[in-house]
């Protein structure tokens, strides 16, 4: 049965981890894969926008005014004669950044908070989760407006404010995951080996709880982007001359009847991104589902 010829690890056959297995299953899901490709494409475009944008960000052609799509301006121009494609590309940088950075903030706080609360249990858990409940209970809009008033309008603050709200649900999901994992024998085995608590949480709990978190993340990014659009629409978020998809949609809505393309194209960009994220999230949920995994 044993093969003494194998003297070190490099000679052994690598196994298929559950992550690789999930990736194999995700790859078979056409829709999720298309979503992933669109998403990566948008992120790539956003990253290189300053170099590939057809016009300068502030470049105006006042004589042109609001013109429908043409060969020179593929998606038309706005009422100040600015190229809409350029506007959408720059706006996407902010919208995507808010979406991903705020979610990252939420992830970091939520996972750590939820994992500690779930693992420690008892009084620590009670105090930590009551704090979550309290923040949950604060009216979100008032919280944001208050932040804006006290600290002034600031992109970084917007990231933080949204992240500070979104981590609450993350923490709750993580906590319930960890609570059920903590009962599992492999965690007890880790305790009986004498592993320190931090190592148990980091090596044994978090990797096993990550599936639902990843799925929820793909649903958080769109909700954060919508939130940004909503705040910008209300005039609380991104301020001109900076722009975002939410802001572009808000302007487009004002002149919807005369210049419909000003609403249509930014709206399309946002919708496409949200669809992609949702399909990806759906695909990931199926791929990471333990019940579907081979045993």
């Amino acid at each position: 049965m044993t093969n003494p010829a194998i003297g070190d690890l490099a000679q052994t056959q690598p196994g298929t981890s559950l992550w690789q297995d999930a990736w194999l299953r995700l790859r078979r899901n056409r829709l999720a894969l298309v979503g992933l490709i669109i998403l990566l494409l948008f992120i790539f475009i956003a990253a290189v926008t300053p170099w590939i944008a057809p016009y300068g960000y502030a470049q105006q052609d006042l004589e042109l005014g609001a013109a429908p799509p043409s060969a020179a301006h593929w998606l038309g121009t706005d009422i100040f004669g600015r190229d809409l494609l350029t506007q959408i590309m720059f706006g996407g940088r902010i919208s995507l950044a808010v979406g991903f950075v705020a979610t990252a903030v939420a992830l970091l706080i939520g996972i750590t908070w939820g994992a500690i609360a779930g693992y420690m249990g008892g009084r620590v858990d009670a105090v930590m989760m009551r704090l979550v409940d309290i923040i949950y209970a604060l009216p979100f809009m008032i919280f944001i407006i208050l932040l804006m008033v006290v600290f002034g309008r600031n992109m970084l603050l917007l990231f933080l404010a949204i992240g500070a709200v979104e981590w609450l649900t993350m923490a709750r999901i993580m906590r319930s995951q960890v609570q059920s994992l903590r009962q599992q024998e492999f965690v007890e085995a880790a305790v009986s080996l004498g592993l320190p608590t931090a190592t148990i949480i980091r090596r044994h709990l978090i990797p096993n709880a990550l599936g639902p978190i990843i799925v929820y993340t793909t649903l958080t990014v769109p909700s954060v982007m919508l939130l940004e659009a909503f705040l910008s629409f209300l005039g609380l978020g991104v301020q001109p001359p900076e722009t975002s998809w939410g802001l572009l949609i808000s302007y487009g809505a004002e002149s919807m009847e005369e210049y419909p393309w000003l609403l249509l194209f930014p709206g399309l960009a946002l919708t496409l991104t949200l669809f992609s994220l949702n399909f990806l999230g759906d695909g990931l949920r199926d791929a990471l589902d333990v019940r579907g995994a081979k045993d």
Binding site: M1, T2, N3, P4, I6, L9, Q11, T12, Q13, P14, G15, T16, S17, L18, A293, K294, D295
Partner: peptide, 12 residues
């Protein structure tokens, strides 16, 4: 009594 070749396999 486990073959050495299994070292990098996962429990499942």
């Amino acid at each position: 009594g486990l073959a050495r070749g299994f070292a990098r396999k996962y429990p499942h």
